[in-house]
């Protein structure tokens, strides 16, 4: 292919340095090792109140599948048995507890994402972990404890190792 006769500069000098404050206000993600978790905490007891006020309208009274009820949002609560599950839930499918915090904080409640306080997010995370039989009702969930929660389905995850070629996998 023909190429530019002008060599690329080391920098184009476009854009500008991002300030620490700018980064901080946008950097809301949370990693499995806990990186990104804010100060604050919560338990299933307070989380239940958050859940009932702000989540139950869509995810159902407790988060569990209810016979005969078609919910407008996914089932969030089940046992922790992967094999033979009806739907994928936090209890039987999610590999990392930090993902609950990350996702709820950024995206829930659906109609008003990012309207919860960090404490509310910790609390409702505790509620969901407890309802899914993963942590105790009085477990305090915070930046320290959340990354240590071992999710039952974690052990099932494997990376896709397909690279094309004749084999169908």
């Amino acid at each position: 292919p023909l190429t530019d006769t002008v060599p690329w500069p080391t920098t184009f000098n476009l854009g500008r340095a991002a300030t620490a404050a700018e980064i901080k206000s946008w950097d809301i993600d949370v990693s499995p090792n806990g990186r990104g978790l804010p100060a604050g905490q919560g338990t299933a007891i307070t989380g239940k109140i958050v859940y009932q006020t702000k989540c139950a309208a869509c995810h159902g009274k407790t988060g569990e599948a209810e016979a005969g009820v078609k919910l407008p949002a996914p089932v969030l609560v089940s046992d922790t048995v992967f094999v033979g599950r009806k739907t994928n839930t936090i209890g039987n499918y999610w590999p990392y507890a930090t993902t609950i915090f990350d996702y709820v904080r950024r995206a829930m409640p659906y109609h008003a994402p990012q309207s919860l306080t960090n404490n509310e997010v910790y609390a409702v995370t505790a509620y969901l972990l407890n309802a899914n039989r993963i942590v105790k009702a009085d477990a305090v969930i915070n930046a320290n404890t959340l990354p240590r929660v071992v999710m039952p389905a974690r052990k099932y995850y494997v990376d896709d190792d397909r690279k094309g070629g004749a084999e169908v996998k």
């Binding site: 990693s31 936090i90 499918y93």
Partner: peptide
């Protein structure tokens, strides 16, 4: 230095293969 394990690459866009869950199927 590591993936973030977001909801979209764990709860979603993963799938059961035999007795495992296959993640990071990109292509």
């Amino acid at each position: 230095d590591q993936p973030f394990m977001t909801r979209e690459e764990t709860s979603k866009y993963t799938y059961a293969v035999k007795d495992k869950i296959r993640q990071f199927s990109f292509e």
